[in-house]
Structure formats: structure tokens, C-alpha cells
Amino acid sequence: MNTSAHPNIPSSMVSVGGGESRKSKATGNVKMSAKDVKVFYGNTQAINGIDIDIYENEVLAFIGPSGCGKSTFLRCLNRMNDTIDICRVEGKIVLDDQDIYAPDRDVVLLRAQVGIVFQKPNPFPKSIYENIAYGPRLHGLAKRKAELDDVVESSLRRAGLWEEVKDRLDQPGTGLSGGQQQRLCIARTIAVSPDIILMDEPCSALDPIATGKVEQLIDELSESYTIVMVTHNMQQAARVADRTAFFHMGDLVEVDSTDTIFTNPQNQRTHDYITGRFG
């Protein structure tokens, strides 16, 4: 287990991932940090003790073969695993120096700070407007209608969806195309202005063009948000991530700048995966 957990090297993450295309907006401050996190489903251990730091405004990608625990770990970061009865999390995850699994920690507040976008777009069976307005309304963030309109518009703009839907805000969100739905879900998440956005394979259900749009959106969002994403698509990680973490069989094998992971991995398993020996 200790062979797999690589200490993170802050200096390496400042270097630009993928060379010419991406420019990291990361500040270098640790936003979130996990210490020896283990996850159990009933008696089966799914995650074997993971240590990782997540930096402010970086894009961090989790890659690895299916069933390696990357999604499970991602869902630990805003305690979505609480919704599964048999799931148990051990270890410590700290957000802004506060343990998110502390008994007095409020999960409602946590999830407002750490938003999540799922694999399959899941707009509510409500209008587009109501989909976006749901979060702010829920948390009492917009007192007046004008304020709410403002939040809805700016969120949709940030998600790059405003131009496409501004004339049909009262139509059901489920009527949009898959890519639009996913961007709607992203807009819904940023309407609460979280600090961190978790994305669980956000493009796996989308066609290449929609995928391109979402990737572009991720790049823009990293201006002001910390983004942690799971992807099964190595090229995607290479395109959008500042740093990449490789998971295998419940271990965090290696985490480094995306550049290093894809060109010069330190670990044999990472190398085998990157070069397509398995996965």
C-alpha cells in the first residue's frame, strides 16, 4: 500500500500539463487533503488508504481501469457515499483545514461547498429555469426574483448554455439534448457557487462534439473553481487536467503533473496502463 501512495510534489504541479494547450490557474494553496482514506462496502474494502492533496483552482483528473475505486473516492470528497447504507469511510479528509467527516460537520453545508456533476445527466423533471434556481432557492441564496433571475442567467452563461436556452427557460430540462443536459447540470451546480466541483465521468454519455464543449467549459471554470474529475478517457485527462492521479485496485498508484504521468511515469503499473497493456 505504501508503495502506491506517492507523496505529491507541489513544484511539479505548477508545470503546465500537456505542453502548449493548457495554462494552469492553480494557486498552489492546498484546498483539500485526504489522509489514509479507506472505504468499505460491507466487508469488502474498495479503497486501501489514499493520501492526496488537491490545490486551489487546479484541474485534477482521476484515471484508472473500471472498478479501481476512482469514482468511489471522488464521492467521498462531498460525502455522497453517505447515501449508500453499507458504505463506510475511514481516514481523514480536510477541506480548508476542517475535517469533513467530523461528527459535527454539516453535510448540507459541505455539499454546497463541494458540488458534484454525475456521469449521466440528471436534470430534474422541471423547467430549465427551475433546474438552475433550485440550489439557490434551496439554500435561500436569492431573496428576490430579480436576484434569482440574475443567478440563473449568470450560471447558464458560465456553462455556455445561455444563448441556446434563453428563449425557452420555462421548458422542461429533460427536453434538451444530452450534451445540453450535462451543461445544464453543471450550471445547476455552479449556481450555488461551490468552491470545488467534482465531476464523475461527465462526458461518458456524450458524443464527441458535446464532449468538446464540456471540456472547454471545464477549462474556463478552472479560473475560479477547483475541479476534480474522474475520466475513463486518458486523452481527456491529457487535454484538460493540470495533474493526473492513476488509481488501480483501490490504490492511488501515482499522482503527478499530467505531463509527467503521460510521458514519464514513475511506476510500472502506471506505465503499463498508459501504454495500453491493460485497462
Partner: peptide, 23 residues
């Protein structure tokens, strides 16, 4: 997935039920 969507935004369980599941 609908429940997860609301919970992921920080809705409590009863808010999820009343505002998303029941509608």
C-alpha cells in the same frame, strides 16, 4: 440519479423527497 442530483446540491433528505422525488 435524481435523488443524487438534489443531495449533491446540498438538499436535505426531506427537501429531496418533497421537492424532487414527489413531483
Amino acid at each position: 440519479s435524481l435523488r443524487d442530483g438534489a443531495l449533491g446540491l446540498g438538499a436535505t433528505k426531506s427537501e429531496t423527497i418533497r421537492q424532487v422525488v414527489l413531483p
